[in-house]
Write a protein that binds this DNA or RNA. Sequence first.
DNA 1: GTGGCCAATGTGAATAATCGCGCATCCTGA
DNA 2: TCAGGATGCGCGATTATTCACATTGGCCAC
Lengths: 213, 213
Amino acid sequence: MGMENQAVTSEQTSTAERILEAAEDLFAEKGYSATSLGEVADRVGIRSPSLYNHFKNKEALYQAVLERLLEDFSAPLAELEKGPVNKERVFEWLETIVRQHHANPNLARLLQHAALSGGPHTNELIDRLFSPMFQPGAVIEEGDISLLESTGLQPWAVMAFNNLVMSYVTMAPMYRDLLGQDPFSEEALEKQLNLIKTLLQAVFEYKGAPPGG
Amino acid sequence: MGMENQAVTSEQTSTAERILEAAEDLFAEKGYSATSLGEVADRVGIRSPSLYNHFKNKEALYQAVLERLLEDFSAPLAELEKGPVNKERVFEWLETIVRQHHANPNLARLLQHAALSGGPHTNELIDRLFSPMFQPGAVIEEGDISLLESTGLQPWAVMAFNNLVMSYVTMAPMYRDLLGQDPFSEEALEKQLNLIKTLLQAVFEYKGAPPGG
DNA sequence: GTGGCCAATGTGAATAATCGCGCATCCTGA
DNA sequence: TCAGGATGCGCGATTATTCACATTGGCCAC
């Protein structure tokens, strides 16, 4: 498999890698079926049949893109999955995924496309990304958020904060004008982090009952 | 087969309306370019060229779908835009949009598709849906959330709660298994409302400074 | 009523563009 | 020389769209 014959000087990105990058951006932007292999090839600077020298077909290319993204995201999160779950860990975990999605919004976008069209890609994604969060070991046992626990809202809260982070990435382009700044700038990241941490902190400190309807 | 014999008495759904409904579902699910007119026609039970008797072309059909959705959503929200903005109004407004998106998830899905592909549809959507929320008159002036106000986070908070509601709709299919119930059931709606109200309440009651990093 | 007209609405066939993909061939560097 | 990789060509399928045509229902003159 390893064909890296050390062309020592330059870390030349291979054609396969450039294909992956182009395809990742396009799949994330337009979704699977609306992305044409011709457009991918154009971005790489080759003709579309050349893609088949590196990937079996369109579906395989998509899978490879997905695999690469999942690997990048799984690594930092895997560290957090060890050890007890307490407030500090939750803050760390949240900050990590915020920064991850900010650094590369494509996974969130791919995920959103999959969720919308509910295709066969969906199931694999939820298994790989979200199942760990909902495992029994991931329950916060302290009394701080007994409210959420007693009302059975905790998994919903996990899902909510996740959606909060991911939807920032997938919807941010629409807010570019409204917020008056680039949603992916460094300042925007800080503000986003600030808001989410504030929200989480508010949840932790909140002791009252949910407002009745 | 026979067409509608009864002309006036029964409000038989016209062909154009059935086309709109089918197209709405498909555009919401697959997005604009991945939706084929043949599939729309199939759902209505006609051949695709017949669509052109009711809509100029695919783009016009999309615009008509969008117009109908925006009308449905604008009406209930217009009522809330009158009068002073205080905590109670915010709760009402939030509950209204949650129920609206729950009753018809298609607008949120269309919006998400538009945001992802950043096409020409995006700008019109943000103008029609979100601009009102960010107008100067929509600022809460009470001291309750002075924290958000002083840190300039208020528009971000508005955006966050909006994303929270919309992403529930666009991502919920992925959580069907994880949450163990239909995300669009009546109980799920109540839980979703409960969680969001709890979050909002927590924000209102939260007085502390955001956790420093 | 009846015959004829017209507008609305459906249809099949045809077109041009685009798509994923296979294949034979050619180029190039080791 | 040889293999990996890029290419041109082309097939079959799908797409949006057009057009000539068939069928219908309502309406008016008689």
